[in-house]
């Protein structure tokens, strides 16, 4: 699965896709593969204010539990109910149907994040 180049990546394995005044956040294929079969995703409540770099949720697998970090400051406006109901969506399709949350954010400059190319170079698969 190619790492999509239409979005940005963090060193803690989240992806962030800008969409107007909001962003969609998920976790990378590399992170999902490291976790193995996902069994549970802890999502934040809609309306919760997130702080960049702070954990907002958890992904649990049969093997490990990992925190998910907010890439930018902002407010949760939507969570992916389909992933809550069927966490294996994360394994199947981490970049599309496996998105985690949408945030409203004032952030406009994403140049400090990694491009797909740089992320892949750091985490070969």
């Amino acid at each position: 699965m190619a790492t999509p180049s239409d979005r940005f990546y963090t060193s803690t394995h989240e992806w962030i896709k800008p969409q107007g005044d909001s962003v969609v956040v998920g976790i990378s294929k590399f992170a999902v593969d490291e976790l193995t079969d996902v069994t549970y995703v802890e999502m934040p409540a809609i309306g919760r204010k997130l702080v960049a770099g702070k954990a907002f949720g958890e992904v649990e697998s049969v093997k490990a539990t990992s925190e998910i970090y907010a890439p930018v400051d902002g407010e949760v406006i939507e969570v992916n109910q389909a992933v809550k109901d069927d966490p294996s969506l994360l394994n199947q399709d981490p970049y599309d149907r496996g998105w985690l949350i949408k945030m409203r954010t004032a952030a406009t400059d994403f140049s400090s994040f990694l491009t797909a190319e740089k992320y892949d170079a750091a985490h070969p698969h």
Partner: peptide, 8 residues
């Protein structure tokens, strides 16, 4: 080998 197809 941790897994081949998936742990589950």
């Amino acid at each position: 080998p941790l897994l081949y197809r998936g742990i589950i």
